[in-house]
Amino acid sequence: MSKNKKKADEKATKIPVESPEEHPVENEEVKKLQEELEKKQQELDDTIRLLQRNQADFENFRRRNNSVRAESYENGKRDAVSELLPSLDDFDRIVSNADKADEAWVEGVKLVYRKFTDELKKLGLSEIEAEGKFDPNLHNAVLSEAADGVESETILAVLQKGYRMGDKILRHSMVKVSE
């Protein structure tokens, strides 16, 4: 090999290696792009998490809504009947305090009362039994009184009747109990 060719070969094989410090502007750009990429990745992760949460919310909402129509009808019925309970109370008072001297009028009122209660029974209304032992699931004790010879927590009087529709209680019986 000639000296000149050897020198040329040496020149050719020496590839200059550029250090990062020699191109600061490009490296700055790469760093910026990397930061932006990380930021976008974070945003994507947050969005996916939000989507998953919303999807779970929606599934729960859909499951709860499946029975909403049937429940709404029953709830509406219960609300309507609850509104009528004060009138039923008034009827009870009229009938129990009727003036016996005016029997025809009293009979008329009793007829309306029976018809009214029959219609309510058809809608599913029934009176809560309020005799014997007090049960907080069915009764609301508002008064207590000493009563000789009577077991404690026995219902002494019903101050306001309680009613239920099916297994749902519209109003608990308001009662007086023995001490």
Binding site: P136, N137, N140, A141, L143
Partner: peptide, 18 residues
């Protein structure tokens, strides 16, 4: 607290007098 049971809320209030 009634009959070894713990009642909370509306049911507890209904039996408060007894």
């Amino acid at each position: 607290f009634k009959d070894g049971e713990r009642l909370v809320g509306t049911i507890a209030k209904r039996q408060a007098i007894t």
